[in-house]
């Protein structure tokens, strides 16, 4: 399916007598994936500790799952890790657009394809095609990118409700910004649960995110 999209690029490479891309995950993606993992885990763990200082739902996060022994340490971790998340995230977006990663791997995603793949996945009939994201994956990846952006914007609104008042107003004020920030976190945690569950179900997808892996011969796709 994807070979149709890729074909012209492959032909161009063949003309220039260059080898086609052979790895499943190119190195910038792998580096950014794990830096992002480190930032996200730190932000969620410290964010839970910060939430616990002034909860607005009848729930508290267990101590063992939080990062930072007390509020001061948790805020310090949160406001340190956010720089890694933002710089790495910016790098990912720039790389994603410039390299064609978004165009080739995450796009297009049609409601019909999502419906088809979601039904197949639920019946465990959706095969894992190496190097190709199915429609449900594409939707989830695009969704979690959007949630990440929402989390950063709402977090800025909580951090600076006076200086960044337009952002604070956009979310409806200080407290609504906290709620949006929390909701974005919940969505990201839900994504992580599915993401890690799928890796547990298909463990062979994990090593390529470390080593890069090797794509099957592109000729097979023709």
């Amino acid at each position: 399916m994807n070979s149709i999209v890729m074909a012209p690029a492959l032909r161009a490479r063949a003309r220039r007598r260059q080898p086609a891309r052979t790895v499943i995950h190119p190195w910038p993606l792998r580096v950014m994936h794990w830096l992002n993992a480190l930032a996200i885990i730190t932000l969620i763990g410290s964010g839970w500790q910060i939430y616990n200082a002034s909860p607005f739902l009848p729930i508290l996060f267990p101590r063992w799952a939080t990062i930072g022994e007390w509020l001061g340490a948790a805020i310090a971790w949160h406001l340190a890790a956010i720089w890694l998340l933002m710089l790495n995230g910016l790098g990912y977006l720039l790389w994603g657009f410039a390299s064609g990663h978004f165009r080739h791997k995450l796009w297009p995603v049609s409601p019909r394809a999502v419906w088809r793949d979601a039904r197949a996945a639920i019946r465990f009939k959706l095969p894992h095609e190496v190097g190709v994201y199915n429609a449900v994956q594409r939707l989830l990846y695009l969704g979690v990118i959007a949630l990440g952006i929402l989390a950063v914007l709402s977090g800025l609104a909580v951090w600076k409700p006076v200086q960044l008042w337009p952002l604070s107003d956009l979310f409806g004020g200080f407290f609504p910004s906290r709620v949006v920030h929390f909701t974005a976190m919940a969505g990201i945690v839900l994504f992580l649960a599915v993401h890690i569950l799928l890796v547990a179900l298909v463990p062979r997808v994990l090593p390529p995110m470390i080593t890069g892996g090797r794509l099957p011969d592109p000729e097979w796709h023709r």
Binding site: I41, I67, G68, E69, G72, A73, A76, W77
Partner: peptide, 8 residues
């Protein structure tokens, strides 16, 4: 490193 005591 992350879960240890900080500022203790």
């Amino acid at each position: 490193m992350l879960t240890g005591c900080n500022f203790d």
